[in-house]
């Protein structure tokens, strides 16, 4: 059994997340990457508005709390003033793909050297389970009580697919954390994003398909099954783009 300690980049604060929620795993993966790269002292994280709003208490690096949807703009401001630091945002689907779509798309197309951790759980968690931009067709939420009707509510947004079309994006990868093999892949993707930052290679987004047992009304195990059976077919896992934007450092 390997030594399984709390990463240094996580504070000694109890996470407030619901049982079975995958936020905790993703937090840990980000923290492990920061530890492994030994960059905690040079990293600034930006939290969103959403369930992970208080992530500033959980990460041991310097943290900023952004207004709803604006994390990529906040990260841009930090990074432009401090080009040699590592800057990541941690955002949910409502934050990133609804109210903050413009900030996401433009930070991406500018090729900002930041890493975006995008938690897609197909719902607004913190406010109690309303329809998100990523809510699946037919999915029942508080504001789609008869199921998302694409004739009325339109279709889900596929961010990795969209962003992979932009020249400023170095890495767009969709992962999940429902089993050890996928957790390993997710961590590798996050690490690659941070490494691209180190080389000033452009914008990286790692979309993590995540569970929300509370708002889905499922047990944690059922939630993982739903993710496998319903979400992955709609949001296929994989690398949508992996093409460093800039060929030489700082170019």
């Amino acid at each position: 059994m390997p030594d399984f300690k709390r990463p240094h980049a996580l504070t000694d604060v109890y996470l407030h997340y619901c049982p079975g929620c995958t936020h905790g795993i993703v937090h840990r993966l980000v923290a492990e990457v920061i530890d492994e790269m030994n960059i905690e002292g040079d990293t600034i994280g930006v939290c969103p508005v959403g369930c992970s709003v208080m992530a500033y208490d959980y990460f041991n690096c310097d943290m900023m709390e952004a207004s709803h949807g604006r994390a990529p703009a906040v990260a841009t401001g930090i990074k432009r003033a401090n080009p040699d630091k590592f800057v990541f945002t941690y955002q949910g689907d409502g934050d990133l793909a609804a109210i903050g779509t413009a900030e996401t798309v433009h930070a991406a197309t500018r090729g900002e050297n930041i890493t975006v951790i995008f938690i897609n759980n197909t719902t607004y968690g913190m406010t109690g389970g309303q329809m998100a931009p990523t809510t699946l067709p037919g999915q029942v939420t508080q504001t789609t009580p008869y199921g998302r009707n694409t004739d009325i509510e339109g279709f889900p947004v596929k961010m990795c697919e969209m962003l992979s079309q932009l020249d400023g994006v170095a890495l767009a990868e969709r992962v999940t954390v429902i089993d050890p093999a996928n957790i390993r892949k997710a961590k590798a993707a996050i690490k690659k994003g941070f490494e691209y930052q180190a080389k000033k290679q452009g914008f990286s987004i790692i979309e993590v398909l995540s569970t929300c047992p509370t708002n889905w009304g499922l047990t944690p195990v059922q939630a993982i099954e739903r993710l496998k059976n319903d979400m992955i077919p709609y949001y296929p896992l994989g690398v949508y783009k992996d093409a460093p934007v800039r060929n030489k450092e700082g170019a």
Binding site: M64, A66, R70, A73, A75, T76, G77, I78, R80, A102
Partner: peptide, 14 residues
Amino acid sequence: EVAAINMVYGCAGS
């Protein structure tokens, strides 16, 4: 404008 003021927020925060 929204993005610009939030870039200011980030930069000022640093």
